[in-house]
Computed example of a mutant assay.
Amino acid sequence: MTEISTQDLVELIERVLGPFASLQEPLEARNPAKADVQLAAFWFVQAELLKLPAFGIQMLLRDLERLDALDSLAPGGEAGAALLSIDAQRIPGHVSLALAVRLAAHTVKAQGCAILGIRNVGALGVLGCAARSLASEGAVAIISANSSAFVAPLGGTAPAIGTNPLAVAAPRAHAAPLVLDFSTSPMTLAALRQARATGGTLPASGAVDADGQRTSDPTRAAALLPEGRISSLTGLGVELITGVGVGGRLAAGLPAPERSALVIAYSPEAMGNRDAAELCAQLTQDWQGAGGHVPARFDSLPLKREQLPSRISVHSEALAALEVRAQGTD
């Protein structure tokens, strides 16, 4: 591990992502703007603060490899419309999601709600960070994503859907937004890759091999398993609203070149509800009072860039590779 100034890390990521941003930043711009690059860099650092390096710098480097042979491509859609579609094939996943969040926030303020589909997108990182950004501006946000099939249905023995993460966030009075962020499978593909790279083992009930038999060997894993019935059905639902609804769904066994995502955001005030933040705080108390666990993983994260800690520890190899990338943009 290497300790680095957090500000230096943010600036390093922004240098790497800079070529994908438009020189201008009007809200009507269809290309990612400097503001989107800045927000994407913030999310990458948040992933590192959450101790999720596979969703931080390492994910950025993998996504850049995907883009090496491609040029920038302007997303489609008209800014300001409640329904938007973004083609992100040649844009880093985090940057395209930041673009969607910026347009969604603007549209919610203007019209009360926004629905954005992102097609052909690469790695999206921790969706909860994006949902939290919208909730911090007063919106209720739902963000989902689908990916190549590598998760079996409950009771199944072969992959049918992706890990299909889902994030929901809402503003909360006297506290940071309440954020839910989970996937179909308790194990992510990033964790599977890590286990394969390090020779680690999987939970006994975490995967099946090509013959449909349970395995703890990551090199034999042909499909991950869902945590239970609700998890399995949630993954199927995410596949419906993203893979089917937005596009990109391919038959099981065919590698989807990219994933798709859906961003839904709306203003509680547009629904006639001026007490959403207080209701969310009350819900938190009721849930805890009933013996429930309130997700708090995101609560320790800063809501603004200026609140980031002064220093951060990151993997030395990933940092070195990022610095090489940054040099190539000079």
Rank of each mutant, 00 (worst) to 15 (best):
V208M: 07
V208D: 04
D209G: 03
A210C: 09
A210T: 11
A210I: 11
D211Q: 15
D211F: 09
G212L: 01
Q213V: 13
T215L: 07
P218K: 09
P218H: 08
R220M: 11
R220C: 09
R220G: 06
A221T: 07
A223S: 13
A223V: 05
L224C: 08
L225S: 04
L225V: 10
P226R: 00
P226A: 08
E227I: 04
G228H: 10
R229V: 10
R229M: 13
R229A: 15
I230T: 12
I230V: 13
S231A: 15
S231N: 14
S231K: 03
S232L: 07
S232K: 03
S232M: 02
L233M: 13
L233P: 01
T234M: 15
T234C: 11
T234Q: 15
T234F: 10
G237A: 11
G237L: 12
E239M: 10
E239Q: 11
E239K: 03
E239F: 00
L240G: 02
I241A: 00
T242A: 06
V244F: 13
G245D: 04
V246W: 05
V246T: 00
G247K: 05
G248D: 03
G248T: 05
R249A: 13
R249T: 01
L250I: 06
L250N: 07
L250F: 12
A252F: 00
A252G: 02
A256W: 00
A256V: 01
A256M: 10
A256Y: 03
P257Q: 10
E258M: 10
R259G: 15
S260W: 00
A261T: 03
A261L: 00
L262D: 00
L262I: 05
I264E: 10
A265M: 12
Y266A: 07
Y266E: 05
Y266H: 11
S267P: 09
P268H: 10
E269A: 15
A270L: 07
A270I: 00
A270S: 15
G272K: 13
G272P: 08
N273R: 15
N273A: 08
N273F: 09
N273D: 15
D275L: 12
A276C: 15
A277L: 09
A277W: 07
E278T: 12
E278K: 13
C280R: 06
A281I: 08
A281K: 05
A281N: 09
Q282A: 12
L283M: 14
L283C: 11
T284M: 03
Q285P: 01
Q285R: 14
D286F: 06
W287K: 01
Q288N: 10
Q288P: 00
G289I: 04
G289F: 08
A290D: 11
A290I: 00
G291W: 02
G292C: 03
H293R: 12
V294S: 05
V294Q: 05
P295A: 06
P295I: 11
P295Y: 09
A296M: 06
A296D: 11
A296Y: 01
R297D: 09
F298T: 06
F298Y: 15
L301D: 07
L301Y: 04
L301R: 01
P302C: 07
P302L: 03
K304W: 08
R305Y: 00
R305A: 14
E306T: 12
Q307K: 07
Q307M: 09
L308F: 12
L308G: 06
P309Q: 09
S310I: 05
S310M: 09
S310W: 06
S316D: 14
S316N: 12
E317S: 14
E317W: 01
E317F: 02
E317V: 08
A318H: 14
A318N: 13
L319H: 12
A320Q: 13
